[in-house]
Design a protein around this nucleic acid. Structure first.
Length: 582
RNA sequence: GUCCAAGUAGCUCAGCUGGAUAGAGCAAUGCCCUUCUAAGGCAUCGGUCAGGGGUUCGAAUCCCUUCUUGGACACCA
């Protein structure tokens, strides 16, 4: 258990000793540092519950606290705010408790098994800027939850079914009508795909354009889509080959972004559950035909607001995303039986997921009280406040976006330090870090403005600043090693700057919990910046390696190691890789 | 039209389960390099929290209302 948590528990016991019962008591970092390092605001809450004056309750608490050697400068201010500071002994014992393992500064949660669905890529379509946030946010939520003790399974849920399959296959037929899969006598045998990954960048757009321009072609595409969904062999084999080809490049880009999926499944994997899904819905009389389509009502009688029905089968017989999403839930419950399923997707999908969750519960595919959660995120916009575009107004590919940032980070490399052969790789790590950190810094739900030079700058709240500072810590520790300096004891504090670093470290568990609760990484991203900058201040004020007092030097090295290890742990949650030099 | 977000410093964003004097980064201005990566640090400047009303000891935060901006709303995913 973290130091802060056990202190809070002790405070809780102290309150019970006084006859007060409170679910939790919080030791918050003070917003009045002139009065104390931490504050306890619960006297006011208790005052309401027990109908007493906040001041008298605060006095009772303070009486007990003053005999505790961990606290000093205990005082009451304002309406009943209790201010406390921690003694040097308390801070030293805290650092000792985490110096060999910084994860001792984390409070684990009761374990749960969760499937998190956060890919969003569509087979045969290019990944573009709109696909950036899901892997960033989803992966980070996954890593955070897993650090806090959850068993997490990330599923890419590839968009490998639906209208684009018909368009792509039709386009292939037009370009390569000699392929065996288009022959009537085709029996499902293997054949070589005549295209490369790069060709996919062109095939879908041109197929989609043709379909939009001609109703007749659109109809052909619909029929092909229907046939793929119903197992027509030639089209299905071809489509699956294209899905595999496309998956290769999707995986490459996700790997660059540090998103790794435990489950690489797609909508097609849910097909086998569709008959069962439709059957169970029908048996419960939940579905009906409306305008030729099979639909299901998801509103409840006590709804104050309207919730439109969901469409399960189109009038041409093809399935829709609600169908595959429901079938996917059915499959996940059967195969993995998770406690919860989470979705990380664009805010615009909120209504869709609301309907799907309703449907799943109504049809008893999951329990009524099951936890299906949608965590929506905002859009990355250009300076004009509209989704980020290329200079000529086209859709910006994800690869293109990364290159754009990389050009900028390349300029910032210290060429005296980074060898020529490492520069390209390092610039790319910095670019990914810049992009990811900027993406995780705003609250999940907000739209934010993309600004290359701001994000890749070395000053301020940026990925490169964090990496630079972390590398500098590592470099310091390496120098100590080269000079054969032994350090293992932490028993001395000197000034406000080392104290400030420790106080910041103390707050880590609160930050992790808040980020987890909100399923947003903004607070954690902000915290790494805070920890890094208080450390930099400390680093700037104290010359560690040349410090004459050995006890102090040793303590400072221990502290540096703790901050370095904490930074590495947190950078890893955000999915930022740290180079050795930059 | 119905519903959902959002409006906080010049810019980009935090803060919203009600708490003390509303924060950070950038930009601007001024300092600190014989020193572990100065790619750093310190300081100053900057606010009618969109407008109006309400709830209470206390409101950026909760409620009502007006305005503004995004977005979703049946055969795309």
């Amino acid at each position: 258990m973290s130091y802060i948590k056990s202190t809070e528990n002790a405070l809780k016991d102290l309150l019970s000793g006084l006859g007060y019962d409170l679910e939790k008591i919080e030791l918050c970092v003070s917003n009045r540092p002139d009065l104390g390092e931490f504050q306890i605001n619960d006297a006011m809450k208790l005052a309401k519950i027990y109908h007493k004056s906040p001041i008298s309750i605060a006095n009772e608490i303070v009486d007990r606290l003053s005999s505790n050697s961990s606290f000093m400068n205990v005082n009451i201010a304002g309406a009943g705010f209790i201010n406390v500071s921690l003694s040097d002994e308390a801070l030293i014992s805290f650092v000792k408790s985490i110096q060999n393992d910084v994860t001792a500064n984390i409070d684990k949660l009761p374990p749960k098994k969760v499937i998190i669905d956060y890919g969003g890529a569509n087979a045969a379509k290019m990944l573009h800027v709109g696909h950036l946030r899901s892997p960033n946010i989803g992966e980070a939520i996954k890593r955070l939850s897993s650090l806090l003790g959850y068993e997490m399974l990330g599923d890419v849920h590839l968009g490998d079914s639906g209208a684009q399959s018909g368009m792509v296959v039709r386009e292939m037929r037009e370009r390569y009508k000699e392929l065996p899969c288009f022959k009537e006598e085709y029996d499902g045998g293997d054949f070589e795909l005549p295209i490369k990954k790069e060709d996919l960048n062109d095939i879908y757009p041109s197929g989609s354009k043709k379909a939009k321009e001609s109703e007749q072609i659109m109809e052909e595409c619909r029929q092909i889509t229907f046939q793929i969904q119903n197992g027509s062999i030639g089209y299905t084999v071809l489509w699956n080959k294209i899905v595999n080809l496309s998956s290769e490049s999707i995986k490459e880009i996700y790997a660059k972004l540090n998103a790794n999926f435990e489950l690489w499944e797609g909508e097609q994997d849910a097909y086998k559950y569709i008959p069962e899904l439709l059957k169970t819905l029908e048996e419960q009389n939940l579905t009906y035909i409306s305008e030729g389509a099979l639909v299901m009502d998801v509103k409840e009688t006590d709804d104050e607001k309207e919730l439109p029905p969901i469409l399960l089968v189109k009038n041409d017989g093809a399935y829709l995303y609600a169908t595959t999403d429901l079938a996917t839930i059915l499959g996940r419950i059967k195969r993995f039986n998770p406690d919860e399923i989470w979705y990380t997707a664009d805010n615009r999908q909120e209504l869709h997921f609301k309907q799907v969750f309703r449907a799943a519960k109504k049809a008893n595919i999951v329990n009524r009280n099951a936890t299906l959660e949608f965590f929506g995120f905002g859009t990355m916009n250009g300076p004009d406040g509209k989704p980020f575009k290329t200079r000529d107004g086209g859709v910006m590919g994800l690869t293109e976006l990364i290159s754009l940032v990389k050009e900028e980070t390349f300029k910032n490399l210290n060429t005296d330090i980074v060898k020529e052969e490492d520069r390209d790789k390092t610039a790319e790590m910095l670019a990914i870090a810049a992009l990811k950190y900027a993406d995780l810094l705003p609250y999940r739900n907000t739209d934010y403005v993309f600004d290359v030079s701001k994000f890749s700058d070395l000053d301020g709240k940026t990925g490169p600043y964090l990496l630079y500072s972390t590398i500098r810590m590592k470099s310091l520790l390496n120098k100590a090693k080269e000079q054969c300096i032994e350090y293992g004891n932490f028993n001395k504090l000197k000034n406000n700057s080392d104290r400030e670093v420790i106080l910041t470290l103390l707050n880590l568990p609160n930050v992790l919990n808040k980020s987890f609760e909100a399923k947003s990484l903004n607070e954690l991203a902000e915290y790494i910046y805070k920890l890094t900058s208080v450390y930099n201040k400390f680093y700037n004020e104290n010359k560690i390696l040349t410090e004459k007092n050995n006890e102090l030097k040793e303590s400072w090295l221990v502290l540096s190691k703790v901050v370095y290890n904490t930074n590495m742990l947190l950078l890893n949650i955000l999915g930022l890789n740290c180079p050795d030099k930059m």
